[in-house]
Design a protein around this nucleic acid. Structure first.
Lengths: 113, 113
DNA sequence: GTTAGGTACTTTGCAAAACATAGTACCTAA
DNA sequence: TTAGGTACTATGTTTTGCAAAGTACCTAAC
C-alpha cells in the first residue's frame, strides 16, 4: 500500500465519467482523450483507454467514425450518443453525491488519546 | 453499464480512505465501521470490509486488540497505527487533488452541434 | 445440559476492470 | 523497399470487491 498508488486506485470507477466528460466537448480519438486526461493528472495507460472506449461503444454510449490521418493510419473518432449523454448526466449526479458522502466522513485528525 | 452500479464503481479505490477516516475517530470493530459507511450511503458488504481490514492490518496501517462482548463472540477492535495515521493524511491530500482534477474536466453539457 | 439463534470472523470461488506488454496494420519518407 | 512513427488490437496477470458458505463463540430457551 503506497501513497504513490493512491491516485491510480481512486481513479478506478471514475474513468468512465472522465472519458464521457472529455467527449462531451466534441468528438475525439484515443490519443486526444489520453492527452486530455494526462494533462489533468489523471494518469491512464493506452491499453486501458482503448478497452474502455470499446466497452462504452458496445454499451451504446459512444459511436465512432473512421477518419483518414495525414500522418499515419486512420483514426476512430468517438462521440457521445444520446444514450451516452444521458448516462453522463446521471454519472455526474452520482459523482457529486459520492464526493459529498466521502467528505461527510471525518477528515484526518489525530486519534483521540 | 448501469447507473445503479455507478456508485459502487466509484467507491473502488476510495474504500481504504473511508475506512481510515472512520477509524481516525477512535477504535471500532467491523460492524461499527460497516454501519458508519452504510449510514453515509457508501454501501459495502461484510466480506469486502473484513478482507480490507486484514489487508490494512498486514500492511501495518492498523492494529487490533480482542475484546469480550456481552452478546456474542469476542470482537477485533481496530485502531490506526502511527503509519496508518500518516497514510491517512497522505490519502486525504490525494483525495482532494483527485476531486479537483476530475472536476476540472468539462462537466456535462450538450455536445456542440 | 443440549439445542437454537444470533453475532463475529474466515475462507473460497468468481467477476470486473486496470495494467503491462506484445503484436498487427497503416502511412510517410528516406 | 525498408525504417520508423502512429493507431488500434489482443493476451495474460493482478487487484479488489462481491457472493455465499463455513466456523466458532456466546446467550437463552427448553
Amino acid at each position: 500500500m503506497k501513497v504513490s498508488n493512491a491516485r491510480a486506485q481512486m481513479r478506478k470507477g471514475v474513468l468512465e465519467l472522465c472519458v464521457l466528460r472529455v467527449l462531451s466537448k466534441g468528438e475525439a480519438y484515443a490519443s486526444d482523450v489520453l492527452a486530455t486526461l494526462q494533462d489533468a493528472d489523471l494518469i491512464v495507460v493506452e491499453g486501458t483507454l482503448y478497452a474502455l472506449l470499446t466497452r462504452m461503444k458496445n454499451a451504446g454510449l459512444l459511436a465512432y467514425r473512421w477518419e483518414e490521418s495525414k500522418s499515419g493510419p486512420p483514426r476512430k473518432y468517438y462521440e457521445l450518443t444520446p444514450a451516452g449523454a444521458e448516462f453522463l448526466s446521471a454519472l455526474d449526479a452520482e459523482w457529486t453525491r459520492f464526493v459529498r458522502a466521502v467528505d461527510a466522513l471525518p477528515s484526518f485528525e489525530a486519534p483521540e488519546s
